[in-house]
Amino acid sequence: MSNHDDRSWGQFVEEIPDDTVVERFEGAEPKTATEIADILSCTEYEARSKLDALCRTGQLDRKKVREEPPLTVWYQPRATFVGEDNGTGRPVDEHVSALLDDMDVPGISGMMRDWRRDAIRATFDRLRDTREIEEAELIEQVYPAHSAGYDEAEQWWAMVSERLGDLPGVVEPRWGGKTWRYDGQ
Rank of each mutant, 00 (worst) to 15 (best):
N3F: 11
H4C: 03
D5H: 12
D5S: 13
D6S: 13
D6A: 12
D6R: 15
W9T: 06
G10T: 01
G10Q: 00
G10H: 08
Q11C: 09
Q11I: 08
Q11W: 13
D18A: 15
V21D: 03
E23G: 11
E26I: 12
G27H: 07
G27P: 04
A28M: 06
E29K: 15
P30W: 06
P30A: 08
A33G: 14
T34R: 14
A37M: 07
D38H: 13
D38C: 04
D38N: 14
I39T: 10
I39V: 11
C42F: 02
E44H: 06
Y45Q: 13
R48G: 01
R48F: 02
K50W: 06
K50D: 00
A53M: 13
C55Q: 00
T57W: 05
L60K: 05
R62S: 11
V65M: 08
V65H: 02
E67L: 12
E68V: 10
E68H: 14
P69H: 10
P70W: 01
P70E: 07
V73L: 15
V73H: 15
Y75Q: 07
P77L: 02
P77Y: 08
R78Q: 10
A79M: 09
A79Y: 08
T80W: 09
T80C: 07
T80Y: 11
F81D: 02
V82G: 04
E84F: 12
N86K: 09
N86Y: 09
G87Q: 03
G87K: 01
R90F: 10
V92K: 03
V92D: 02
H95G: 04
H95N: 04
V96E: 00
V96P: 00
S97F: 05
S97D: 11
A98P: 01
L100V: 06
L100P: 03
D101K: 15
D104P: 03
D104Y: 12
V105D: 02
V105K: 05
P106L: 05
P106E: 09
G107P: 04
I108G: 08
S109A: 09
M111K: 13
M112F: 02
R113Y: 06
D114C: 08
D114H: 12
D114K: 14
R116Y: 09
R117V: 00
R117C: 02
R121K: 15
T123S: 06
F124A: 02
D125T: 06
D125S: 08
D125G: 04
L127D: 07
R128C: 02
R128D: 00
R128E: 03
T130A: 15
R131S: 10
E132C: 10
I133P: 03
E135N: 10
L138K: 03
I139K: 14
I139H: 06
V142S: 03
V142W: 05
A145N: 14
H146C: 05
H146Q: 07
S147C: 09
G149T: 01
D151Q: 10
Q155V: 06
W156A: 02
W157M: 04
W157S: 07
A158F: 13
A158W: 12
M159S: 11
R163E: 05
L164D: 00
L164C: 05
L167W: 04
G169Q: 04
E172F: 10
P173D: 01
P173N: 07
R174Q: 08
R174N: 01
W175P: 00
W175F: 11
G176L: 09
G177R: 05
K178M: 05
K178G: 01
K178N: 08
W180R: 03
R181M: 10
R181S: 12
G184C: 11
G184K: 11
